[in-house]
Amino acid sequence: MSRRLAWLLVLGGGAGLVAAVVLTLEKIARLRDPTYVPTCSLNPVVSCGSVMDSPQAAAFGFPNPLLGIAAFAVVVTTGVAVLAGFHPPRWYRVAFHVGTVFGVVFVHWLIAASLYDIRALCPYCTVVWVVTIPVFWYTTLDTWPALAPLRRVHSAVLVLWYAVIAALVLSAFWDYWSSLL
């Protein structure tokens, strides 16, 4: 595993971990006091409250950020271990890649839910979207030598990916964005 990927895991995983912790704290505050308005509920569109209260926010029967705390902690730890000189065996790298596949699939399911079902954006959740995609993408490239041709355009693929999601966010909340101008 390359050191650059390790750094990405530390920084990306760290950002995801912070977002998951904040969301968990917001969820606890809301459970304690149902009238509590989360710090990130700014208006009808940028609203953690409506996202956190949706059924999709507990996809496996418990709040999603708990999963985020566990998973991003593994991402950060893996990055730190590699920077400290750990050479992960093949099975570890494949298993880690499988984990990132789960993460990226889950994140896209959540994006779809947020844009088309809940119809609100939650800033901490978008942090998770933003970091999960490169963690998945660069882990994929690093794990599978057969993907070498794609490495030559690695960041082009990443920004195209972001651009598509940005376009979907723009169109889903069209009225909101156009009212800001």
Partner: peptide, 30 residues
């Protein structure tokens, strides 16, 4: 610059132009 850098720049510029253009041209509707 490498192919990757060129393609990345192209994607960023095209995306910014399209998204920005669409937003600006439609602002008067509302």
């Amino acid at each position: 610059p490498s192919l990757n850098v060129v393609l990345t720049a192209v994607v960023v510029l095209v995306a910014a132009a399209v998204l920005g253009g669409v937003l600006v041209t439609n602002r008067s509707d509302e």
